[in-house]
Amino acid sequence: MKERDFKIYRGDNERGELVNYKCKVTEGMVVLDVIHRIQADKANDLACRWNCKAGKCGSCSIEINGKPRLACMTRMNEFNEEEKIVITPLKSFPVLKDIVSDVSWNYEQNKKIIPFSPSKKDKEKDFVMMQKDVDRVQHFRKCIECYLCQNMCHVLRDNEGKEKFSGPRYMTRLASLEMHPMDKADRIADIKDVHGSGMCNITRCCTEVCPEEIQITDDAIIPLKERVIDRFYDPIMIFFRKIFGKN
């Protein structure tokens, strides 16, 4: 058992500092275990949000050495023994206390999305869909809403884009609805104007950070951008739609 150095952000959104702690690290520990041990032994008032400790609830999103991670899925043996580990809250969202962030802005974005809208006819009869039709949608359903992608996205993190862009998580949700074979709602104009698909410049950090390995950029954002192009920017598509109708 070796005692190692940690720095943890203590404070709120307005005032805070990095506080040094020492903690004994044993084999198999993850960063969340360390936080719990420090909480039990050294800082009983340390706030920390967690739930499943299995990478499935998305509660324990924090930043470890400046990188957004799930505390429960970051093993201590990833780091050098001498390395000081700095644990901070999500940079893109206000701090509630210590390393707990207020992610309620994300829920507000969710409310802007037109919900799943099957036609009345499809609702009444049994709609048959094949696996190949829902593969893409199921891929997006793996999302655990940890908001690491929202935190990592440079539009929201560094470029003050919260009023213009809903973020990668909601691009993924929009894609899962738009690609659903049963859904009949039209969200393309909203994707461009309300959710700001044009704000994303394909930097792909959301995909890199996703703990569920959802291909957010390739499978959600780019297909949505292409659908927006079909509707608003491709003159040939617009011309054909005018002549042959909507489809």
Binding site: N159, E160, G196, G198, M199, C200
Partner: peptide, 8 residues
């Protein structure tokens, strides 16, 4: 920063 407009 605030002037960022991505691909819009």
């Amino acid at each position: 920063g605030k002037r960022y407009d991505g691909e819009a």
